[in-house]
Amino acid sequence: MSETAIAAPSPTPRWEADPVLDVEHLTMRFGGLVAVDDLSFAVGRGDITAIIGPNGAGKTTVFNCITGFYKPTEGRLTMRRAEGEEFLLERMPDFQIAARAKVARTFQNIRLFGGMTVLENLMVAQHNPLMKASYFTFGGVLGLSHYRRSEKEAIGFATSWLEQIRLIDRADDPAADLPYGAQRRLEIARAMCTRPEILCLDEPAAGLNPRESAELNDLLRLIRDEYQTSVLLIEHDMSVVMEISDHVVVLDYGKKIADGPADVIRNDPAVIAAYLGVEDDEVEAAEEEVEEIKEEAERR
């Protein structure tokens, strides 16, 4: 997967030494359209990994393949949990990817349970452990104390997250009543309440103002450092990507065009041309560079 990696700094980066998620030769076709074309990359354990690329590059498709909402046409997705268990995600139904492989996700267009309260949203996220605690409902209906204790713990965990995202005062309000930025934070907290080992965020900074965007950065660092959760995110907002990412993967037309640490990607001419955009006087220089790269590729 390092054929296009640019000058990987020694020692070997974490995504090669200890990958939590391995994407190998992922291809997704919709009829004649190839949305993702033979994509391989790895997500390092404890890294914040960003997938960037222009609109239509296939980023969300990659996400949907990883989280099981699409079944990939080809390729292998290996999730390695901390205790050593391995899961082949392309073979699992979507809910088991969340429940057993511990992959959580958020959505580009927020998908909260709008008619349920903020706290209820976080309780639904803890469905599986609570289900077990209620002896698959039978114990719960009889009112066994074991379930009541577990529920109290679940509320405690949810409360700690509500404090983390500063929504504790709105715990009993319906989620749909929250302002946009708070809904984004709540969706991340809800995903974290499933206690994932990798958190996939689909454009978490979309629609946030600069202050909220900075808060999001802090939240993501907290998730990485305090909760030991690897983060994989799709993002358009470069201030988020460049500031917090340990590792950036760049897609264009479903293919990977660059893969490496943020500061290396920042200066990659192919990336600049394809995605980041350049200042007016640099356009020509960048185009020349692109031409050179293309010629080089043809020569190969």
């Binding site: 959580a104 349970f113 209820e120």
Partner: peptide, 20 residues
């Protein structure tokens, strides 16, 4: 109980349910 909350969550958004 969790099952009841899951029913209501299902009514609200099935895709989000599966993601959880």
């Amino acid at each position: 109980l969790p099952v009841g909350r899951a029913w209501e969550a299902l009514r609200e958004d099935e895709i989000a349910c599966r993601s959880l």
